[in-house]
Design a protein around this nucleic acid. Structure first.
Length: 474
DNA sequence: ATGTCC
């Protein structure tokens, strides 16, 4: 396919349709943030996604787009369920329901300062992290796991790992309703039994932050945020369970492609009609894994509460919990007609506009919170959904990589990076030197530019900017 | 992302 980008605005580029694309591609970015500027194959993936059966409107890319498995990370694609539309595990990613949770502590930076060292030590000692290893909550077996897979964060709260108000501030109230635990294989369940309440590795982290700037005081107040306030951002997913679900169902779909007469330019786009046995099976398993991811973040929240109580004697409230790796059944207007769509968001956050019926009542006037984590040395953003978002109400999910992990290791030493961050007043509790180096701030796009482009493209609006005080690294 | 290869 010939890939030529046509600028439509300073924040929007079109990738014209050519065979076998069914729809055009749309990349929301500035020139500096374009994948070609950062030298990877993400644009080709945007075009590949546009060939999927049933895709409507366009194959979208967010400002943090970069190369991923099949679909680009930062990719959004919706298929029409009643017109043979497909679901693709590659459009969700291996880390199903990977997401971000923001907590607001009942203390400001200044009074916390003398307790900060102790707080970081407790977090460093109590937050399980790294590949494999254990979690905070041991699940007894398949029967208990199925309850967790059905009710997600709600099951954790039911078992006293949280308070009911937490669920008011979770996307989907903490659980996707379509979960079908019978489609989650025993191997996936076994991998998940010991990992509820653990960060994992890679780009996952738990960060203590402070509100550095407020762009919209009204929305910030509705979210429970003010200047100088201490927050905690948690980024993690569904660990080995989600990974195994993806692996299992990609295999099934790869084998069933021929029987559905589906032709795709890349096997990593393996897919099946939503209305088919493998399609339904994957969506049921995916929802279950998504609920595992939400329960995982709920358990980590409890560890944060324990640390703040012990170190500073203060409480912690949930601001919001969003997933950025999902496929969800949603109703959208397409060319003036209301359609049932399967919306894939891979490294993209739901960004509902003000007034949307799916919003919690106390946020209904403002819009859906959009959490955009940066890196351990840079800012993170809270944004809010806007009216007129073409990409099925989706926004950026983070900074987006520019260096591969291998490249990062050639440029950065973990020990030196820790020294640098500590000298800038950012406490670091790593899991491994290698993992720390791979996640160096230089390996990512400029998150300030990503957040500005997200606003410029009309995907979401800036609410507050957070800067790091300490990082517990997966 | 991931018991970084069953």
């Amino acid at each position: 396919m010939d890939i030529t980008l046509v600028p439509e605005s300073p924040f929007r580029f079109r990738l014209d349709r050519c065979d076998p694309m069914r729809v055009p591609g749309v990349v929301f970015a500035t020139r500096d943030l374009l994948p070609e500027a950062v030298g990877d194959k993400a644009l080709e993936q945007v075009a590949n996604v546009a060939t999927l059966p049933g895709i409507v409107r366009a194959s979208f890319a967010m400002p943090d787009v970069h190369w991923g498995y099949g679909f680009p990370i930062g990719g959004v694609a919706a298929t029409d369920i009643d017109a043979g539309g497909v679901v693709s595990p590659g459009g969700v990613g291996f880390d199903i329901s990977c997401g971000v949770r923001l907590l607001a502590a009942d203390i400001d930076r200044e009074p916390l300062a003398p307790r900060m060292r102790r707080l970081m030590d407790i977090l460093g000692d109590t937050i399980p992290r790294g590949t494999g290893r254990g979690g905070l909550w041991k699940i007894s077996g398949r029967a208990q796991m199925e309850k967790l897979l059905v009710a997600g964060a709600g099951y954790a709260v039911e078992c006293d790992h949280g308070v009911p108000r937490d669920l008011d501030r979770c996307e989907d109230r903490g659980a996707l309703a379509e979960a079908d635990p019978s489609q989650v294989g025993q191997r996936a369940v076994d991998r998940g039994l010991q990992q509820v309440g653990s960060l994992g590795s890679g780009n996952h982290f738990l960060e203590v932050q402070v509100v550095d700037q407020v762009y919209d005081a009204g929305v910030a107040a509705a979210f429970g945020l003010h200047p100088g306030q201490v927050c905690v951002m948690i980024h993690c997913g569904s660990r080995g369970l989600g990974h195994q679900v993806c692996t299992d169902h990609v295999r099934v779909m790869d084998q069933s492609l021929r029987s559905f007469g589906i032709h795709i330019p890349d096997r990593q786009l393996a897919c099946a009609p939503v209305v088919s046995t493998p399609g339904r099976a994957y969506l049921g398993a995916m929802a279950a894994a998504a609920n595992y991811g939400r329960a995982n973040r709920q358990l980590l929240t409890q560890a944060v509460r324990h640390a703040f109580t012990t170190a500073a004697g203060v409480g912690v409230d949930l601001v919001y919990d969003v997933s950025h790796n999902t496929a969800k059944i949603e109703t959208h207007d397409v060319d003036g007609v209301s359609r049932r769509l399967c919306v894939h968001r891979k490294g993209a956050t739901l960004a509902l506009p003000p007034g949307h019926p799916d919003l919690p009542a106390d946020l209904a006037d403002h819009g859906h919170p959009v959490l955009v984590p940066g890196t351990m040395g840079t800012a993170s953003y809270v944004m809010v959904g806007t009216v007129g978002n073409d990409a099925f109400s989706s926004a950026a999910h983070g900074a987006g990589r520019v260096w591969s992990r291998h490249q990062a290791l050639r440029h950065v030493r973990g020990e030196a990076l820790r020294g640098e961050l500590e000298s800038r007043g950012i406490a670091v509790r790593p899991s491994s030197w290698r993992g720390l180096a791979e996640e160096a701030p230089e390996a990512y796009k400029d998150v300030d530019a990503v957040a500005r482009a997200t606003e410029g493209a009309g995907l979401a609006r800036l609410v507050v900017r957070l800067v790091p005080l300490g990082v517990v690294k997966g």
